[in-house]
């Protein structure tokens, strides 16, 4: 465990019953104050907000369509008419980046939701019921951890068509393992607390205790690791798209744009630079926001 524990709102916030609501909100308020102190996390959050807004609203404001080709223009350097230039088919790079961002963010969010759901339920069940069930479930996670999963995602994408729904599911099915481990560890420590015993004594069912009493107290770590899962999911999507196995044309994502840019970088470096920068900046922001949240919510980083 860490040597210095400044304040432990975690433990004090775990009071049962009616008091929880009021305490919970002040816990959230504390965390918010701490988060605001962290400049990098604030920078990350603002950047993400700008990127998300630009991707969702930007294409509506642009005079150019996303598929609109102007072959006579070709790849033109950034200028007044096309702020970030155009690609070899004369398509406006800015609009393509905003549309690509929609797909990248959508894949990031939905695959994370898949991973989150599997991981939380799996980890909570293992941690709550314990014993042989727990041993079997966690042994399975250990084995899965050692498998070369990226390879299976590639196989899936190659053989079952490069379908975007499959992409969500395949990526989500890979990324839930860490979440399961973390949730299990938390549930195991929380289920031994007195308020859980009290809930048992009151005669509540196990399902109710698990979902209404224990899981809300694991919310902190869940939020933190969700924030940190999104960038790794987006990275995997871009990785696949770069190999030509992810999002397929005419749809586009940041990974696709980076792939196209890398092919043409010798003559038209901006085609690689801009998508690469925006993608990296987004990952960077998500990582910082996740780290900031971890500090603000006082989640221990140890995974075991």
């Amino acid at each position: 465990m860490s040597t210095s524990a400044p304040s432990t709102p975690h433990a004090s916030g775990l009071s049962p019953g009616g008091e929880a609501a009021e305490r919970g909100s002040s816990l959230g308020h504390d965390a918010w104050l701490r988060l605001r102190q962290n400049k990098l996390a604030v920078f990350g959050a603002c950047t993400l907000l700008v990127v998300a807004l630009a991707c969702s609203l930007g294409p509506l404001l642009s005079p150019y369509g996303y598929e609109e080709t102007r072959l006579e223009l070709g790849a033109s350097a950034p200028g007044l008419r096309h702020w970030l230039g155009t690609d070899v088919l004369g398509r406006d790079l800015l609009v393509r980046m905003l549309y690509g961002g929609r797909i990248s963010l959508a894949v990031g969010l939905s695959a994370t939701v898949v991973a989150l759901t599997i991981g939380v339920v799996y980890g909570a069940v293992a941690g709550f019921f314990g014993g042989k069930l727990d041993a079997a479930l966690m042994r399975a996670v250990d084995i899965l951890y050692s498998l070369p999963f990226t390879i299976f995602v590639i196989l899936l994408m190659v053989f079952f068509g490069r379908n975007i729904i499959l992409l969500f599911v395949a990526i989500g099915a890979v990324e839930w393992l860490t979440m399961a481990r973390i949730v299990r560890g938390q549930v195991m420590s929380i289920k031994q607390m007195e308020f859980v015993e009290a809930a048992h004594a009151l005669g509540f069912g196990r399902r109710r205790i698990l979902f209404r009493h224990i899981l809300p107290n694991v919310l902190g770590p869940i939020i933190v690791y969700t924030t940190l899962t999104i960038p790794s999911v987006m990275l995997l999507e871009a990785f696949l798209s770069f190999l030509g196995l992810g999002v397929q044309p005419p749809m586009s994502s940041w990974g696709v744009l980076i792939k196209d840019g890398a092919e043409k970088m010798e003559e038209f470096p901006w085609l690689l630079l801009f998508p690469g920068t925006v993608f990296s900046l987004t990952l960077f922001s998500l990582n910082f926001l996740g780290d900031g949240l971890r500090d603000a919510l006082d989640v221990r980083s140890s995974k075991d």
């Binding site: 990785f239 890398a262 990296s280 900046l281 960077f284």
Partner: peptide, 18 residues
């Protein structure tokens, strides 16, 4: 560390080649 974590190899790679 942050650069290594946030800038993917498929962005750094082509940039280094360039």
């Amino acid at each position: 560390g942050t650069i290594g974590l946030s800038v993917p190899t498929f962005v750094i790679g082509p940039l280094c080649v360039l």
